[in-house]
């Protein structure tokens, strides 16, 4: 129970322990703690930065997408317009072509009509001539009435 030399021994042990702790135990453990703290803080900061960058990229992407949409709708509009124009133009040409074809057909028909008329006239005049011939052959001398006949045939022809 009394104070004795144990005190000195204990003080030496204590000093040794404190020295050892100070030299070999505290620094590495404390440093690793601090380092981890820093690492975590850095990681958090980086994560925040990344998030920010993501937000920015999202915004940018939205902008680009919007622009692209606008552009595409513009292109579609343009294409529609062009298509309309083309349709209109082709309608026009088709109309014109049709009209032209009609005209040609009409002309042909006219031609045919003329030809038919001509041939009919010729046939009719030939028939009339033959009939007249037959009627007249009895009374008229061909040579004598040559003049009249040719006049008539000319008129008919």
């Amino acid at each position: 129970m009394s104070i004795n030399a144990t005190l000195i021994g204990q003080m030496i042990t204590f000093a040794l322990l404190v020295w050892f702790t100070m030299k070999y135990i505290w620094p590495p453990l404390f440093d690793s703690l601090e380092e981890r703290k820093k690492k975590i803080a850095d990681g958090l900061a980086a994560a925040e930065k990344g998030q920010e960058a993501m937000h920015l990229a999202e915004k940018k992407a939205k902008g680009v997408l919007k622009e692209a949409k606008e552009q595409s709708s513009e292109i579609v509009n343009l294409a529609q317009k062009r298509a309309n124009e083309l349709v209109e133009a082709s309608k026009d040409t088709a109309k014109k072509e049709g009209e032209r074809l009609i005209l040609v057909a009409k002309a042909q028909i006219e031609q045919e009509k003329q030809n038919a008329k001509e041939s009919l006239r010729k046939e009719v005049s030939a028939l009339a001539l033959r009939a007249a011939e037959q009627i007249l052959s009895a009374e008229i001398d061909k040579t004598k009435h040559q003049d009249i006949l040719s006049k008539i045939s000319k008129q008919l022809g």
Binding site: I3, T6, L7, Q10
Partner: peptide, 14 residues
């Protein structure tokens, strides 16, 4: 050891 005055006093005197 802490029921020995020498131990506690050694520490507190240090």
């Amino acid at each position: 050891p802490s029921t020995d005055l020498n131990a506690t006093f050694a520490m507190s005197i240090s």
